[in-house]
Amino acid sequence: MTGLNIEREILIEAPADVVWRIITEPEQMSLWFADRVDLVVEPGAHGYLSFGDQGGPVVIETVDPPTLFSFRWNHPRDEVPAAGNSMLVEFRLTPEGDQRTRLQVAERDVEHRDWAEEEKVRYADEHREGWGEFLDRLAGVVSAMSR
């Protein structure tokens, strides 16, 4: 994988439809996520998340209950979020029996669609490192340089 990626997961003792509601209903989102959630959960909808006195716009990408919910955020303030300038947050729900759900969250940037195909391939070849490795390496560089 070629980007800045965060991937985390957790096992929840509840059916997927219950987990889905917690993740996607704005009222519930304000209990685990932003302080204020102004959002209509529909593909393409623009919303706003407030974190205290900070916050930012989000754009919903995929709403596929009860398995996939994704949105983009963290784009530069004056730009419309799209591939290349924003992070994609994806929630994936996988039922494990009727009473248990595996929830995976990934926050990732995406490939540059405006690049020519050969540039993408070349770039991917040169830069396969994931987010975790990049961080580890940066931390190493920082401590080496601070010495």
Partner: peptide, 11 residues
């Protein structure tokens, strides 16, 4: 994720 787990399990 831990907060989502708590909310979902309580619901």
């Amino acid at each position: 994720l831990v907060a989502i787990k708590r909310l979902a399990e309580a619901a």
